[in-house]
């Protein structure tokens, strides 16, 4: 193999990003869902604010259902999973049917969660399938370039999400190092200036009085040229 078109590169990258977005937001959603069992207020509003998504939800039941499983809500977990699938389905010969099948299984699982009275149980299957997807992608995909592009998408998405969620310096630093190593290995074209700003903002987080989370999101979003 070895030759990858621009369109495929783009799709691999976004496959990485959306799979990560689903994985991490499920964990957040699960926590939020669990908290709301004890009826401590309307904490889904904070959740929306953190992720910078519009709070279009009537109440917590509405949030639980629509943020999780409404394909008409562009920010829902289901919508993001469908986007991952949309990218994966056209990459079959690049990533392999088996790799692709775990994204399909995740879709089946989330559709079961949608109608379940205990959705967190089914969502665990979605997470498991995404983990399996990453595992098999790593194990099965022969082309290092292909693997690297998916992983770059995943790493970038994670920094992006962590910054939006204002997660602490330790986690962000660790994520930055993993992303940086991958970036150099992938050979993907990137903007030097964005990497500098990103490194600067994350490495010096301890000293800064006001942490520029917005700047981190901006830099990481425009890091790779795709």
């Amino acid at each position: 193999m070895g030759i990858i078109s621009l369109e495929q590169t783009n799709r691999l990258y976004w496959l990485g990003r959306y799979s990560e977005r689903v994985y991490t937001t499920i964990r957040l959603y699960a926590k939020c869902y669990d908290d709301m069992l004890d009826d401590i207020g309307e904490n889904y509003a904070d959740f929306c604010r953190m992720l910078e998504i519009p709070n279009i939800y009537r109440d917590k039941e509405d949030f639980n259902q629509r943020y999780g499983f409404d394909d008409a809500d562009p920010n829902s977990i289901l919508s993001n999973l469908i986007r991952a699938y949309d990218n994966a389905i056209v990459l079959r010969e690049e990533i392999g049917s088996e790799t692709l099948s775990y994204i399909q299984l995740a879709i089946y699982a989330i559709n079961k969660a949608k109608i379940s009275r205990a959705p967190l149980l089914e969502l665990q299957n979605v997470e498991d399938n995404i983990l399996a997807f990453w595992g098999i992608a790593d194990d099965f995909i022969e082309s290092e370039t292909t693997r690297n592009i998916i992983k770059m998408g995943k790493r970038i998405e994670r920094i992006d999400l962590y910054a939006r969620l204002k997660i602490g310096a330790k986690e962000l630093k660790s994520e930055l190092h993993r992303m940086h190593t991958r970036l150099l290995r992938s050979g993907m074209p990137y903007r030097e200036s964005c990497l500098e700003r990103l490194t600067d903002a994350i490495e010096h987080m301890d000293e800064a009085h006001v942490i520029d989370y917005g700047g981190i999101v901006q830099s990481v979003e425009s890091l790779v040229l795709i």
């Binding site: 193999m1 030759i3 990858i4 621009l6 369109e7 495929q8 010969e93």
Partner: peptide, 22 residues
């Protein structure tokens, strides 16, 4: 082991058909 392509990923130049990588 063939590449799956859409028409817009291929182009003709000097009477040859090419696939353009990223």
């Amino acid at each position: 082991g063939a590449h799956l392509v859409n028409g817009n990923e291929l182009l003709v130049e000097n009477d040859m058909l090419y696939y353009v990588d990223y």
